[in-house]
Simulated assay, not measured.
Amino acid sequence: MNSFCLFVFVACVLFASVSANEILVRQIRSCQKQFPKSESRTLPDFDLDLLTKDDKCYLNCIMTVQKVIWNGGFNVDALEFNVNNPKIADKFRKQCGPIRHTDKCEYAARLQKCIEIVIRKTPTSHFPTLD
């Protein structure tokens, strides 16, 4: 009987994970529909001055559905879960946490740029691998 309960528990956890991923995919698609992709969004190292207002609002939408932006502020915990390294999360917190802007789209773009800078300056060995 215990193995059956364990099986049901594992199945529920897996189902919840799949459901959460499906919800996230739907939310991201909704952001893509709201803010159609432009050429400036494909730049590898984007320049804030080249991004359109829609590009910046797209970033805000994505970062909000991923809970990187929560209640109008930077939610480092959402990144820490992904990078799984408290030292890197602390770098994000110290370098990107102080960023403020009254326009939520501009805020998202500046926050994204900061996150990219931290990632670029951090050795790849500090990030988890997808093995």
Rank of each mutant, 00 (worst) to 15 (best):
Q27M: 05
M63F: 07
F4W: 04
W70V: 00
C57Q: 12
K91H: 07
G72H: 01
N85W: 07
S38Q: 14
V18D: 01
L130V: 00
E22S: 14
D45N: 15
K67F: 02
F92N: 04
S30M: 06
N75L: 08
R26I: 01
V118S: 11
L48I: 15
C12K: 02
V8E: 11
R93I: 05
N75H: 08
F81D: 15
I115K: 06
K94E: 09
K94V: 11
T42P: 05
D90Y: 00
V118L: 09
L51T: 03
C114F: 04
F9V: 14
A11D: 13
E22V: 02
A20T: 11
I23Q: 04
I23E: 01
E22H: 04
D131L: 02
D77V: 08
L59I: 09
I28E: 14
C96D: 03
T122N: 06
D77A: 15
H101W: 06
R93L: 07
R93N: 08
L14K: 04
N21V: 13
F81G: 11
L50G: 10
H126D: 07
D103A: 14
S3L: 15
A78W: 03
L59W: 09
R29G: 15
N71W: 02
P44E: 08
A11W: 12
K67Q: 14
I23T: 15
C12V: 06
F9P: 08
D45I: 05
V118G: 09
S3F: 15
D49L: 09
K67H: 11
